[in-house]
Design a protein around this nucleic acid. Sequence first.
DNA 1: TGATGGTAATTAGCCCGGCTAAGGAGTAGC
DNA 2: GCTACTCCTTAGCCGGGCTAATTACCATCA
Lengths: 164, 164
Amino acid sequence: MTGATPTTSPAGAAHGDAATGAPSGDPTGDLAVELRIALLRTARRLRSQKSVDDLSDAQFSVLAHLHVHGPRTPGELADAEHVRPPSMTRTVAALEGAGWVRRTDHPDDGRQVLVLLTAAGRSAVEETRARRSAWLHERLARLDDDERATLAAAARLLRAVVQE
Amino acid sequence: MTGATPTTSPAGAAHGDAATGAPSGDPTGDLAVELRIALLRTARRLRSQKSVDDLSDAQFSVLAHLHVHGPRTPGELADAEHVRPPSMTRTVAALEGAGWVRRTDHPDDGRQVLVLLTAAGRSAVEETRARRSAWLHERLARLDDDERATLAAAARLLRAVVQE
DNA sequence: TGATGGTAATTAGCCCGGCTAAGGAGTAGC
DNA sequence: GCTACTCCTTAGCCGGGCTAATTACCATCA
């Protein structure tokens, strides 16, 4: 099919590309463009796999955050997910409606609320995490060890890069 | 699945930092989980940068596709973006309304439509691409050459992994 | 040639989840 | 105890997924 090779983006034929603002002598310029495309494309594919279960991407992300970090306030969750508080309120409400989280009063501050995973929520995270990784897992299995090592290193780098 | 996910820190009160950083055991199983998390997280950050301009992620993706591949029918675009035709109809309509693409009759088949970039659309792609990469670019600049090489290799691998 | 079935695009209408603006409820400082 | 601030929530907009149904066109075959 559209077997365009990744190396650069010469955009083939009639489409004078190469603009992208990347000075050609500057490797990170190209890299940013290439990496962004690859990441967004892969993420889109990963996200499209989610349709098999009933947990949306935003919802799962919150659940996973609670799973790792423990109870959090909506404000903290909004901050962590880089969304506005009203959006988080809505997501939390959906999760609560589904029985995956519970809202409790904050012990010290009456304005705040603590959101915590229910037992159902905890196992939902664990099951979903495995299932969602299946597609990627299956594809990674086709790579050789070096390639997998590269991706593992990249995953670590991305974590650092994205770190606030 | 692989039984125990090694990343589960007991959410209780502990705040596992080392959680999810662990390379060990079943390499591809862990890798899939780790990579998925890193990719989705990074993609979310990248996407959140878009808010500065008036081009949504889905819209930009279509524009970029047309920029690289030339005129396409809505059906082909839907296929390429892994969305259903009605979704693409809507996206194309928005792009047309903004003047970035034009719809023309298909030369051979009256059922089909050809979507093509306008001049404005073409420069929108080029400008936006550079701007959107700026955030990532700035962060990549803090890495060393080896790390950048790793990410470049990973970008290539991801393209291949996601192919088809 | 005219009915029949398939295919492309669209419309209608649902839902999720971003956002802003505005409104309680609770806290804190004076 | 008033005032200001903080946190959460509600109300309501919008983009963009989806399915189901509709319309327009093509292709085939009796």
